[in-house]
Simulated assay, not measured.
Amino acid sequence: MLKKILQGMVVGIANIIPGVSGGTMMVAMGLYDKLIHSITHLKSEFKESMKLLLPIFAGAGLAIVLLSRLFEFLLANYPIPTNFAFCGLIAGSLPFIFKKVKGHSVSVGKLIPFFIFFGIVILMAVLGENSGTAADVSFSLINVIKLFAVGIIAAATMVVPGVSGSMMLMLLGYYDTIIETINDFIDALIAFNLTEILRVFGILAPFGIGIVIGIFAIAKLIEFIFKKAEIHAYYGIIGLILASPIAILMKTDWSQFSLPLLALGIVTFIAGWFVASKLGGEE
């Protein structure tokens, strides 16, 4: 149970940071196949599915609520070692992922999804340079519908390995607003400010409902793809994952670069690799 909560926290942290993929972390820790199965078979295998989904989603939720400020601080003040740590997490996942295609010969048909999805991640990193202005989330029917739609889009990209849900929020102009709203919600709860709680709930509720619906919709699609072309799908995922560290380093603020920071980055990279080796793999 504790390991699953910790795995969920890693996924949650990944979804906070633009350029880092929560789906990649799921694959890295041997969770991806089981999570997709549990989501798509929730009704028919409710008890077994909830044993996996509850601690994972609880851990992810805890990480997003409790650590969003911490990672805002780390990215603002120590972007190089922080991003190197996530590169280490991703790189440390590769041995587990390569096992999925071991024994299958390389072919042009398998390399096509590899290069397509490798390119998608790099393209998203390039486009993500412009995060857009803060979104208008004042209470209105149109904004509620927009938040619901953004939640669906964000959820879909959060589940797909190699694609960053938080980067998608940046492209849509909602990243800063959602992070600030989560922090406002925590402050309101601590102060027990009912007026503020209701205000931020009006923002987070439609967004959250959209996320839930988006996760279930994309999980069904992914399960279908894996049934029809599992090895080709994994080649696509490998392309996504190999491109992810490149995308993260492209998004890193290098203005503070120094040899001591680079040395610290190497240490955090190794730490990330170590964590991936401990949290990864099948149980």
Score class of each variant (00 low, 15 high):
10 V>R: 02
74 L>I: 02
137 V>K: 07
122 I>P: 06
182 I>A: 00
58 A>M: 11
264 L>W: 08
160 V>W: 10
165 G>W: 02
177 T>V: 12
78 Y>Q: 11
78 Y>R: 08
24 T>P: 09
118 F>P: 00
14 A>R: 03
283 E>R: 14
20 V>C: 05
221 L>E: 09
105 S>Q: 14
5 I>N: 00
256 Q>K: 13
270 I>M: 12
28 A>N: 12
81 P>V: 05
170 M>Y: 07
155 A>Y: 00
243 A>G: 07
175 Y>R: 02
139 F>Y: 14
268 T>V: 06
259 L>Y: 12
92 G>L: 01
41 H>Q: 14
221 L>Q: 10
120 I>M: 10
66 L>Y: 06
162 G>P: 02
27 V>Q: 10
184 D>L: 13
267 V>Y: 00
2 L>M: 12
9 M>L: 07
188 A>H: 04
213 I>P: 09
70 L>K: 03
97 I>G: 02
261 L>Y: 06
253 D>Q: 07
222 I>C: 10
221 L>A: 15
257 F>N: 03
241 I>M: 13
182 I>R: 03
245 P>N: 09
192 F>S: 14
162 G>T: 03
67 L>P: 11
193 N>W: 00
225 I>K: 08
178 I>A: 06
163 V>T: 04
180 E>M: 14
221 L>F: 13
225 I>C: 12
152 I>P: 00
9 M>R: 02
38 S>W: 05
262 L>T: 00
222 I>Y: 07
12 G>R: 03
238 I>R: 06
132 G>L: 01
281 G>F: 02
102 K>Q: 12
242 L>N: 04
245 P>M: 07
275 V>H: 05
153 I>S: 04
129 E>S: 13
88 G>D: 02
22 G>E: 03
232 H>D: 15
56 I>E: 05
171 L>E: 05
204 L>F: 09
11 V>L: 12
11 V>H: 11
253 D>W: 04
214 G>F: 03
164 S>F: 06
279 L>E: 03
64 I>R: 06
51 K>N: 13
8 G>V: 04
107 S>R: 07
277 S>V: 04
269 F>M: 05
262 L>Y: 08
90 I>V: 15
135 A>E: 03
123 L>I: 13
253 D>L: 03
146 K>N: 11
102 K>T: 08
213 I>E: 08
108 V>G: 14
112 I>T: 12
181 T>W: 01
127 L>V: 00
172 L>E: 11
212 V>P: 09
194 L>W: 09
28 A>H: 07
9 M>H: 02
202 G>Y: 02
126 V>P: 09
15 N>E: 13
194 L>K: 13
36 I>V: 12
145 I>V: 15
5 I>G: 04
254 W>R: 02
